[in-house]
Computed example of a mutant assay.
Amino acid sequence: MASSASTPSSSSSSANDLRILVERDPPESKLSELNIKCWPNLNLFLVGKYQLKFDAEETCYLVKGKVKVYPRGSSSSPSSASASSEDQFVEFGAGDLVIIPKGLSCTWDVSVAVDKYYKFESSSSS
């Protein structure tokens, strides 16, 4: 996992790499190890919808809030969802540790105002 995360890849595999990872209620030891309380804090996202594009990988820990994220290209109407309904949106909230991949364009549908700690990965060392 310490190897270079920015290796060239074909466009067919890049869609599979743009998945949001959510760890529900991580142990306090993990949060301490990540030193989350030293990360910047943001409480900007009020209830509403936001169009976002991530130019760097973001890791965040939500202190408050509830969000449904609809990746660009998914149909944002869960009513007609089939077996792939998990691909339609990702939901996370207070107490979740979330990794959002670089390159993801999405809509954040915020139902409870968000307060989070966050950091961006800067993996361009060459």
Rank of each mutant, 00 (worst) to 15 (best):
9 S>W: 00
56 A>S: 09
64 K>S: 15
67 V>L: 09
31 L>S: 12
110 V>C: 03
69 V>R: 00
119 K>P: 01
39 W>R: 10
10 S>C: 14
76 S>M: 07
103 G>T: 09
71 P>S: 11
46 L>D: 09
72 R>P: 02
65 G>M: 10
97 L>G: 04
11 S>L: 14
33 E>C: 01
2 A>G: 15
48 G>E: 04
34 L>E: 06
111 S>E: 15
49 K>D: 12
44 L>Y: 12
21 L>C: 04
80 S>C: 11
58 E>W: 02
69 V>D: 00
42 L>Q: 14
25 D>I: 08
44 L>Q: 12
96 D>G: 08
94 A>Q: 14
121 E>S: 13
75 S>V: 04
118 Y>I: 09
66 K>E: 05
69 V>Q: 00
30 K>M: 08
11 S>G: 03
24 R>L: 05
22 V>S: 00
52 L>C: 13
78 P>W: 00
31 L>D: 13
9 S>V: 05
114 V>Y: 01
108 W>C: 04
113 A>G: 10
64 K>W: 08
86 E>V: 10
10 S>H: 11
43 N>G: 15
7 T>I: 01
94 A>V: 02
13 S>V: 13
20 I>R: 00
7 T>M: 00
81 A>L: 07
77 S>Q: 13
80 S>N: 07
33 E>S: 07
37 K>T: 01
99 I>E: 00
53 K>E: 04
84 S>V: 09
32 S>V: 05
45 F>D: 06
121 E>A: 03
54 F>E: 12
112 V>G: 00
109 D>I: 10
4 S>N: 15
105 S>T: 06
121 E>L: 00
41 N>K: 14
34 L>M: 14
46 L>A: 12
41 N>H: 05
103 G>W: 01
88 Q>E: 02
43 N>T: 06
84 S>Q: 08
110 V>Q: 07
44 L>K: 07
103 G>P: 14
116 K>W: 05
7 T>E: 08
35 N>E: 14
114 V>W: 02
40 P>R: 06
69 V>N: 10
90 V>D: 01
9 S>D: 09
12 S>A: 11
5 A>M: 07
66 K>H: 13
97 L>H: 05
76 S>R: 14
65 G>D: 11
65 G>I: 13
15 A>W: 05
72 R>I: 02
124 S>L: 12
111 S>K: 03
99 I>N: 08
34 L>Q: 02
98 V>D: 11
93 G>A: 11
119 K>R: 12
93 G>L: 01
43 N>K: 13
58 E>H: 03
118 Y>W: 07
84 S>Y: 05
93 G>I: 10
50 Y>R: 02
72 R>C: 01
17 D>W: 01
24 R>E: 14
15 A>V: 14
60 C>P: 01
67 V>K: 04
87 D>S: 04
52 L>D: 03
101 P>D: 13
4 S>D: 12
112 V>R: 02
77 S>W: 02
96 D>I: 01
69 V>K: 00
23 E>M: 07
113 A>M: 07
66 K>Q: 06
72 R>M: 02
15 A>I: 15
